[in-house]
Design a protein around this nucleic acid. Structure first.
Lengths: 192, 192
DNA sequence: TTAATTCTGAATTGTTTGTTTCAGAATTGC
DNA sequence: GCAATTCTGAAACAAACAATTCAGAATTAA
């Protein structure tokens, strides 16, 4: 019988993800990847596949982490509105404290236009965030914390868009106050 | 005395810009560029410079076109508020009718993090749009078309962010209605 | 026409790219 | 321990990459 694979695939993908996240798809060479993953290219090709395949797996990994995060936020006993506010606060803190932008946003602009698989994964990720926001907003409206004149579907889409734009703003201006103000404005607007 | 350059530099940069716009910086090879520009690589290196230099010139060219567009919008006799609404409408139409995203947004995510020159050009471009929006909103508040409780600086930043996010939304969902709804929501919110 | 200068195009540079090969080390079940 | 199987690592692959070279064509002003 055969021996087992000597490297931990999930750990390796995590390492590869970090490199792709920083350098982008085209900006990352296979040597960058194998160096970070600490495996030989033959092992990579025998187990995971080629560069594209690896990238797809990294994006999938990235979105799975985000999915788990959203699930955890729903698991608590906080009110829908306070979950929402906490989520927005945390999103702002991730933007203004991280060196890098969101990998999903970067990949959307660089890769999703050419690679259907990546696009579908990111679309699924976006839809998941949409449903997360949508249900919270809907419940918050029922609780009377958000005005019933607001459209939960629209607001969910709207937040996802502003949030992506905040990353671009922060790349260019590196101004935390700007982002914080916009977040506060968004919350104030939807608050009854 | 010496002969003149046989190719039109601005035309060549326009062609190069189209390629960079579509394929990104890393995704564009020098062959792609010289093919589109219809010049030899030696001519390119003798007149414009290397790939980076060319990209910087292309981004600059892109932002100059946008600058001229904003200036033209201010030149008319329309009210500040209607200039604003028309600008937003046009922005939406560009997003939902174009195959590609905004080059400035794409470049911000792919290149601006590594290349200071590109970042500075894009920052300047963003600041120009900011001033454009800011003055229109301010005047619209003075005219009573926008509530004086709104903060023109915040709203200008806010629109620039949502607008960038709309591009990501459209890449993933290709849903014109989504974008139109969000634009209408933004206009309705600021309308007195 | 001429001499000075500059631009052009084909060929080529060394490097880096993604990918494959294959001999041998490692691990397994029996 | 052994045979079967599979993983590993160094080396090598062709292709693509950005960039350079240089001889000669083209253009200029006198």
């Amino acid at each position: 019988m055969a021996r087992n694979i000597a490297f931990n695939e999930e750990e390796a993908i995590q390492k590869a993800m970090d490199v792709f996240w920083e350098k982008g798809y085209k900006g990352t060479s296979l040597r960058d990847l194998t160096d970070a993953m600490k495996i030989n290219s033959s092992s990579l090709y025998n187990t995971i596949g080629d560069k594209q395949e690896l990238f797809v797996k990294c994006v999938k990994h990235y979105t799975e982490i985000r999915k788990r995060d959203l699930d955890k936020r729903l698991a608590g006993t906080d009110s829908p509105f306070s979950i929402l506010v906490k989520y927005i606060d945390d999103a702002v803190n991730v933007i203004i404290s991280g060196e890098n932008s969101c990998m999903a946003v970067k990949a959307a602009f660089e890769v999703a236009t050419n690679d259907k698989r990546v696009k579908d994964i990111l679309k699924e990720d976006s839809d998941y965030a949409y449903r997360f926001l949508h249900q919270l907003i809907k419940k918050a409206i029922e609780n009377g914390e958000i005005s019933d004149e607001e459209d939960p579907e629209l607001l969910a889409d709207y937040f996802i868009s502003v949030w992506a734009g905040w990353y671009e703003s922060y790349i260019l201006h590196k101004d935390p106050i700007k982002i914080k103000k916009m977040a506060r404005y968004f919350i104030r607007q939807i608050s009854k």
